[in-house]
Design a protein around this nucleic acid. Sequence first.
DNA 1: TATGAATGAGCTTTCATTCAT
DNA 2: CATGAATGAAAGCTCATTCAT
Lengths: 186, 186, 186, 186
Amino acid sequence: MTPSRPMRADARRNRARILAAAEEVFAEHGASASTEEVAARAGVAIGTVFRHFPAKRDLLAAIMKDLRRRLIDKAEALIANGDPKTAFFDYFTYLVESSAKIGTVVNLLAEEGPSIEPGEQIMALTHAFGTLMDAAREAGAVRPDVRPDEVIALLTATTHGAMAAGWSDDLRRRTVNLVLDGLRPH
Amino acid sequence: MTPSRPMRADARRNRARILAAAEEVFAEHGASASTEEVAARAGVAIGTVFRHFPAKRDLLAAIMKDLRRRLIDKAEALIANGDPKTAFFDYFTYLVESSAKIGTVVNLLAEEGPSIEPGEQIMALTHAFGTLMDAAREAGAVRPDVRPDEVIALLTATTHGAMAAGWSDDLRRRTVNLVLDGLRPH
Amino acid sequence: MTPSRPMRADARRNRARILAAAEEVFAEHGASASTEEVAARAGVAIGTVFRHFPAKRDLLAAIMKDLRRRLIDKAEALIANGDPKTAFFDYFTYLVESSAKIGTVVNLLAEEGPSIEPGEQIMALTHAFGTLMDAAREAGAVRPDVRPDEVIALLTATTHGAMAAGWSDDLRRRTVNLVLDGLRPH
Amino acid sequence: MTPSRPMRADARRNRARILAAAEEVFAEHGASASTEEVAARAGVAIGTVFRHFPAKRDLLAAIMKDLRRRLIDKAEALIANGDPKTAFFDYFTYLVESSAKIGTVVNLLAEEGPSIEPGEQIMALTHAFGTLMDAAREAGAVRPDVRPDEVIALLTATTHGAMAAGWSDDLRRRTVNLVLDGLRPH
DNA sequence: TATGAATGAGCTTTCATTCAT
DNA sequence: CATGAATGAAAGCTCATTCAT
């Protein structure tokens, strides 16, 4: 937006520290955690947080963006290097595994009012997911009659469930396998 | 002292109105909705809410109890009258369908700190669910190798997902079918 | 005021129970104790308390009146039967001893705004006290140069101190003796 | 983190104004006065009061600490410069004179639950008082048989009485003299 | 009369946000 | 830019008082 000048080094450093701190704090105490707590964890003053993120929801949104970025990167890596037969299943599993953070934040966003910037990132994520799924289908590893939106719904659900209900590692593994089993051709 | 005579008529009426209002308000705005809003919706003064539910978490807990009661009733009706082959699937579907309310509340309770009264109700619910599932398995309608906790996990996940993500009716139906398909013998 | 009819028996009984309960409760938790707590202790409903004492301050005032009544009775008994040489000192000591209740209430009244009905009772009390003191002076047991208001001030002070500071029985006895010593002729 | 640099100028100014306002307000209306009233009197917003004193009892405690500090300073000044024969009596009188504030607060603290920080300050105060009293005794100005705790009890009592009962200046002077007379050798 | 549910002003406290330093 | 003190709008909760039962 503002072309202005590139961020000063210390400013960029602070921004990153705040994001990292926020991810931790919100994962621990929920979105109702105070911004002050985030500032403290990041080792900056409260004013600094608000300079970088004019409102709390901006901070939440930025965390989401960050998380999505990482998920997209992971997907693209799998698209480039993975075995089509397994890459899709690996990715699905990976998403659920890393859902502790994501899920928490997602959940909390729900409280902050719906739809914080769906935007192009979501599309990129959806697209990458679709690519992996298509590849798996062509390789005969996924039932041909399941539709992408259903699978994404399943993923969302499993992800939410995994964190909200506090499943044990074992239960989560078995449940994910059950879900994935349902996607394989009989 | 006095052997706690039955609640006065107006008190019982108000209690019910508050519960109904709270269910609506929390479903709409999340658990962070104010108790004042609940009072307004119920058409009573704030003090009345606190007379019936001394703390906000008591109100949340009461809503949960009410919802669970209804779910248990439904299960028992199906156990008594349903066709073993389909009752389990019907119940699963019913639970997800009615999850808009349930899910929201469940979610929010998670934030209120862990474990608001796990209690016997949960056990009754789990037991009823297990009974339906066993009947379906014996009738050959469910894979013999899936375990109850996995299925409950799946249910939780689908339920959470359904409401948190705001699925369309159509998508929800297809997703639930996909899940249930995975539970049927191949 | 209202000549009306004499109080019904149960009403009079309730009034007494409320007063007794209030004395206890306020002595324990201070004047900030809730009227509801008083009602509970008395075994009546809150409405009953307010029927007898239209406002909280009326309840406080009634307690005071009761206490003063007992103090006056005690003084009159000593005037009638006591030894002039010792009656005054006994009374002074008695007042301090029984000050736990009085003191608390007096203190708390201070918070309720100044001067809850000084009235004729105070005069009666002052007069009785003066009578005992005069008798002691005439018997040569009290310095002739101390004035009544000073001694009453001293009494007030000792009384307050005794309860506010939570003196031990031993300390209270020694302090009272020290004070009384100062009143005796050298 | 940061080695707690000195308070910002405006913060220090506000802290002082809040303390001053609180002393006034609580002296006037008792400890039940609202924090809001204190904020208004100090000319700051309610949040500022709570930034400086996270809970109401912290504010009360701070006032006490301030008062005690002043009393200790006065005692030490008298120890350093006063005439042993009179310093003790002057101090006793000074304490009672300034008791309007002290007494009120002391009283109110009593309601806030027992013992807000007894701590070293109390010991310092007690010690200073004892020093003055010893000096007076050695100078032959105080009876050798009175014990320090009795005198402190007397002081407490007189102090409480002075403010609770609203003695006139004249009455207070005469009463204090009467008390002090009792402490002198016959 | 007694009951106890309802009222609603008011209290303490929290926290997102602003702005002087 | 960073700091952190100040702001003030809620929020949860209490309690004296009223009034339908």
